[in-house]
Design a protein around this nucleic acid. Structure first.
Lengths: 277, 277
DNA sequence: TTGACAATTGACCGATTGGTCATTATTATA
DNA sequence: TATAATAATGACCAATCGGTCAATTGTCAA
């Protein structure tokens, strides 16, 4: 098994239990049954491991949410699909979600905070685009508050059901939140958050990603993953990106092929943005 | 100045900036201009300092919220007063609020988590009593969800305005949240959280506090605070607790005298419960 | 079988941590 | 002023941290 993956998986378990600071590299290497030196062959430092974990999972969360928004045609179902998918992701990667809950704004490391803020802004942007699409002009003055309320719902209900041992009815939860969202969207009259207050648009991750950057990441991922449909699709997409030869339908199909592979979600997200799907 | 207070105030500043784990006792003692040994004369350990800080502030938050609920007669204004008071407290003790945000469920220390959970449950209980009072039967099936939504609002908007440097219009914020609360209370039909799910009532801090326990705390506080109206009132209340001699009006007045003294809020809270005001 | 090269190890490093305690400074009492 | 009691100090401790690197083991073409 890939050392890097092994370390990431095992360390995440420990982080979820104890938090970053409280987990020593010694503990991680013991748990992985490798030596301390071997750890530093895979990661330059403990911080680099943490940043890699954040990227790995936040990329999936962000891409998943974006995919749902892009690929749900029925406006009526949009928020339901969004809530369901979000909580489903949280549940699936509950260890990482627990770490997020624990650390939150925390962790003194500047890079860490900047990274999390950037992903948070992306998430906000996705929510805002949903709101504008479903409610349009109707919520012009209250849409930013709505963004925050939705974030509040997700945050507080996640906390609740991560502590719960019993399985949670995600369908019921999502439906109940859709009802609340609709209520707030349609009847709120007193806005509190103004556009200036959250200044969407000044964050680095919003920048357009260049073709070359995408190619770099693709090559990297092609190296990483084993022979499979996903790898083939990735190679074809890479060639198409260098010199377009395929029809839009084929490209969409290829994107569909790779979108559920954990290593390809980010590429899938970037390419959808690049081709303006 | 009292050493204990000095350490608590100064350490809180450092915790707010850096977090618990990242702040060493050396840093704290340097910042207080005292020696390391002196620190251990006031607190048995670093953990004890942290627990003292939590008690000091959570007692104030809890007691403040409870006071507002008990002393607001107009149901129409109840939630407004509650939101306003809560955010006002957060703003006033923003350093502690920041620490709470940072650490949250965090911090591996069992005692810490248990304590925070207990205060959280008290807060939930206060919110629930407000909901039942204002909306009554109407929200029988959705009241627990409402509790969580309100907690979500408070949590997410606190985050927002703690990061904001500019002063925040608490009046506007509170009014906007009251509107949202009313909307959710009056029109939500799909409940998600059931009573069993949050099992209110199984936490230790809910237990009835005995007269002796209150007396202990009162004696301790009488030692702590300097000569003042508050101290006199405290002594009178103590005597009355041992052997009731004063009329209810006088007791109420004495309680009013002490309720704004930082050291007396908890006593005020306990006595109000004891006398069933 | 050899030997060049890469992968892996874990003893070791300096720094820092929470906590201790013999010693010293300060204050109160007589 | 002399003495007892209390408050305060900071050098010191063992433990642990993230990180390094000389030494060892494994791999594979020649």
């Amino acid at each position: 098994m890939n050392k890097k993956q092994l370390i990431m998986e095992k360390s995440l378990e420990l982080f979820a239990k104890q938090g970053f600071e409280a987990t020593s590299i010694q503990q991680i290497t013991d748990y992985c049954s490798i030596s301390k030196g071997a750890f530093y062959l895979s990661f330059k430092s403990k911080d680099e491991l943490i940043l890699a974990l954040i990227d790995h999972f936040m990329i999936q969360f962000t891409a998943d949410a974006d995919y749902v928004v892009t690929n749900t045609e029925d406006d009526e179902k949009l928020f339901y699909e969004f809530y369901y998918s979000t909580f489903h992701s949280f549940q699936k990667h509950s260890d990482f979600t627990k770490v997020l809950m624990k650390e939150q704004t925390h962790s003194f490391n500047k890079d860490f905070i900047i990274k999390m803020r950037a992903y948070d802004k992306l998430f906000e942007k996705t929510i805002l685009s949903m709101i504008e699409r479903v409610y349009g002009e109707e919520v012009e003055h209250t849409k930013y508050d709505l963004v925050y309320c939705i974030k509040g719902f997700i945050s507080i209900y996640s906390q609740l059901f991560l502590l719960q041992k019993a399985p949670v009815d995600l369908n019921l939860l999502s439906r109940s939140l859709v009802e609340k969202t609709n209520l707030l969207a349609r009847h709120t009259t007193i806005p509190f958050i103004s556009q200036e207050m959250i200044q969407i648009g000044n964050e680095p991750l919003n920048e357009e990603v260049t073709k070359e950057q995408i190619l770099d990441i693709m090559e990297q991922k092609i190296e990483e993953i084993e022979e499979s449909i996903e790898k083939e699709s990735l190679i074809l997409l890479k060639q198409h990106l260098i010199e377009p030869t395929l029809s839009q339908a084929i490209v969409k199909g290829l994107l569909e092929n790779i979108r559920n592979h954990p290593h390809c979600k980010w590429i899938s997200y970037l390419l959808r943005g690049y081709y303006k799907f």
